[in-house]
Nucleic acid binder design. Structure first.
Lengths: 196, 196
DNA sequence: GTCTATATTACGATAGAC
DNA sequence: GTCTATCGTAATATAGAC
């Protein structure tokens, strides 16, 4: 144990509180008053730590994007047959979704109303395109079924992966671990729900 | 051709405009000023047609829920082996998602900030539970793979289905039809992406 | 059915004391 | 680092003329 009491906020710890409220009420549905109540300090005190409400959004989204893009540089994502790299990226993306859950949740919900949000959407599209390229190569290798369009398949794969932020909740008694969820996603997406 | 000129708004036609803006900017990110500009009439004129901003949300969500629940009463959803009924409901849900795209999109994005939104979330959960029961029965029949938890499988199936509202856009040149998308969802979800 | 004008409240952000 | 007080703006909604 350390002697640290942590009664005061750092930009980091305040961000965690803010992101939780953003995810519960939506970014636009959250006022600085809501944040101040959740953090237990006054509105103006928040401005001591961050410049604006939008800065909180930008920091959160940055963190989410850093986590996701890092996956694409891992060895498992850069070497081997495309279909194996695709499975690897799928697994690791699910794991990052879960380890950075609140931040990625926020990223996946931005609507593009501000510069920050449009920047987030653009970088997200970039990530999607990188994964789409893997699907395209895997299809060219004959490793993906031929009767589903590759672009459609990409959408559906991301639909399944990204849905994790809509329902995964940590620390519930019997909640699945990050690995179990990743396993289930990979089995379902690549082998299907139906019994052999 | 009819003689109807339709220069004035009905609650219906105004709703269509409003829902489009809600989906683009988010409900909380949309002001009555935004709506008035999109509709080409003044803010106060909107209040001639509807009582409040929230009434527009309620009407839209109602329409989405009606479409979804109707699927569960169709013959294909009420007779036969559970796995077949599940496939049928999956197909029809995708079709309703597409035929009522803007309304269902709005439904799937509510966060629970108002009574209307909480009611929407509750009814949506009800729909999910009805479909989850089909998965449970299909699993008991041995028609679904045994190595993925049924609750997890339900989440992933809905993740894939619901993601349609995030990317499907009608009338783009080579856009897939409703049936093609439903086919792809069923193939991917039940048989998997991987080549035989 | 639509408008202009306005009431009233809520919002993001700042000033300045302690 | 936190507070109270407040500024300026933008929000939902209403009043009442045409």
């Amino acid at each position: 144990m350390t002697m640290a009491k942590r009664d005061t906020y750092t930009p980091e710890s305040l961000l965690a509180v803010a992101v939780a409220v953003f995810n519960e009420r939506g970014y636009d549905g959250t006022s600085m008053e809501h944040l101040s109540r959740a953090a237990g300090i006054s509105k103006s005190s928040i401005y001591h730590h961050v410049r604006s409400k939008e800065e909180l959004l930008r920091r959160a989204i940055s963190r989410a994007l850093d986590g996701l893009f890092a996956v694409l540089d891992e060895p498992g994502a850069t070497a081997g047959p495309a279909v194996d790299r695709l499975e690897y990226v799928t697994r690791r993306t699910v794991e990052v979704l879960i380890s950075e859950l609140p931040y990625v949740t926020l990223l996946l919900r931005v609507r593009g109303n501000t510069d920050t949000e449009r920047w987030a959407m653009e970088r997200r599209r970039e990530f999607d395109h990188r994964v789409a390229a893997l699907l395209k190569q895997a299809a060219a290798d004959g490793d993906l079924r031929a009767d589903v369009d590759v672009r459609l398949a990409t959408r559906l794969l991301f639909g399944m992966i990204n849905s994790v932020v809509e329902w995964y909740r940590p620390q519930r008694g019997n909640a699945a671990t990050s690995e179990e969820v990743a396993d289930a996603v990979i089995r379902t997406a690549f082998a299907g729900l139906r019994a052999h």
